[in-house]
Amino acid sequence: MKNILLPTDFSENAWNAACYAIELFANEACTFYVLNTYTPHIAHSRFMAAALEGNMLEDTAKEISESGLAKVISRIKAQFNNPRHSFYAISSFSMLVDEVKETIEDKQIDLVVTGTKGASGLEEVFMGSNTVRIIKSVNNCPVLAVPESFPFVRPNEIAFATDFNRFYTESELEPLLDMSRTFGAVIRIVHVQQGIHALSELQKFNLDMLRKYLKNVEHYVHTVSELNSVSKTLEVFSNELDIHLLAMLNYQHSYMEKITREPVVKKMAFHTQIPLLVIPELGMCNKKSKNQNEEGLSVSQ
C-alpha cells in the first residue's frame, strides 16, 4: 500500500493535482492524506482584547480548514469512489513546509503530490513558491508537481534529465523505475549540454551504471544542445517527444537546482507543462520508522 500526501489550499489548482494522483494510482491500494495548514494573522498588542481576537481568528481558521478538508474528501469520494483508496484529513496550525516534513515522517509517506501554478510577465515564477519550498526542504520523499489544469494522461513516455556527473544508487532511482514498471513506460534519458562534446570517463561510467539499473526497462539516451536555459531545453524536448512525465534527481549542482536558480527571463516559458517528479538525493532506502532514528531513539513529534 502506498501512502500519498496531498497538500491543499482548496484551490482548483490543488484539486487538479489531487485528481491526477488519484487517477495515477487508480489500480493500486493507497492511503491519501489530504493536508491543509492555517496560520491566521494575530495582531501584536499589549491589550488583552487583541489576544482574545487572536484566539477567535485561530478558531475561525481551524473551522474553515476542517470544513474545507471534509468537502474535498467528500468531493473525491463522489467523483472517484475507488474501493482501493482511503482518505484522511490533516488540519494543522503550522507552516506548510514544516507540516509536510512532519507528516512524511509520521505517516511514512511514499510520495507528495502538489499542484503548481505560474504567473505572467515579470511575476512569473518556477512552479510557485510553495512547491519550490517543498522540493528544496524535503530530502526523504519524492515530490510530484502537477501543472495547473493539466489533465491526467497515462505516463507512457518518461524523461529522466541528468548530466551523468553523479553516481546514482538503484534505491534513488526506485521511484522512477516504479513508475516505468507500473505503466510500461519508456524512459528517455536526456542529457543537456552546452555544446555537444564527448562524455568524460566519469560520465561514461555513470551512464553505464544507469543503463544497468534500467536493463529491464525500455530506455533511450538523448543528448541535446542547451538553448537559452536548461528549463527551456527540457520544455522543448518534452514537447517534441510527447513526454508525459519529467523526472529529476535533486542534489547540489543538479539540473533541478539549476532550474530553480535560473534568472526569471530565461525560465519564463517554463511552467512545468507536464508533471515533474523530483527525487531526493538520498532515495527511499533511508526512510526510518516514525518511532526510530539511526540510534534507535524515539523521534520527537
Rank of each mutant, 00 (worst) to 15 (best):
N55Y: 14
N55C: 15
N55G: 15
N55F: 15
M56H: 14
M56D: 13
M56C: 13
L57S: 13
L57D: 12
L57M: 12
E58P: 03
E58C: 13
E58G: 12
T60K: 07
A61M: 04
A61K: 10
K62I: 04
K62G: 10
E63D: 07
E63C: 07
E63T: 00
E63R: 01
I64V: 15
I64T: 09
I64E: 12
S65M: 08
S65V: 11
E66A: 07
E66W: 08
S67A: 03
S67N: 06
S67T: 11
G68K: 03
G68L: 05
K71E: 14
I73W: 04
I73K: 00
I73V: 11
I73N: 07
I73H: 09
S74L: 10
S74G: 13
R75W: 05
R75Y: 08
R75C: 01
R75H: 02
I76N: 04
I76V: 06
K77A: 15
K77H: 13
K77I: 14
A78H: 06
Q79L: 09
Q79E: 11
Q79I: 02
Q79P: 05
Q79F: 02
F80N: 00
N81K: 11
N81E: 13
N81M: 09
N82Y: 08
N82C: 08
N82E: 07
N82H: 05
P83T: 00
P83I: 06
P83M: 05
R84W: 03
R84D: 04
H85E: 08
H85K: 02
H85I: 01
S86I: 06
S86P: 04
S86H: 07
F87D: 04
F87G: 05
Y88L: 11
Y88R: 10
Y88E: 13
Y88H: 13
Y88K: 13
A89W: 03
A89N: 06
I90F: 02
I90Y: 03
I90H: 01
S91R: 04
S91L: 05
S91A: 12
S92L: 00
S92W: 00
S92T: 07
F93H: 08
F93N: 03
F93R: 04
F93T: 00
F93E: 01
S94Y: 00
M95E: 00
M95Q: 05
L96M: 07
V97S: 11
D98K: 07
D98S: 06
D98Y: 10
E99N: 03
E99F: 02
E99T: 02
V100D: 09
V100G: 11
V100H: 09
K101Q: 15
K101A: 15
K101H: 12
E102T: 14
E102L: 14
E102M: 13
E102S: 15
T103G: 03
T103K: 05
T103S: 09
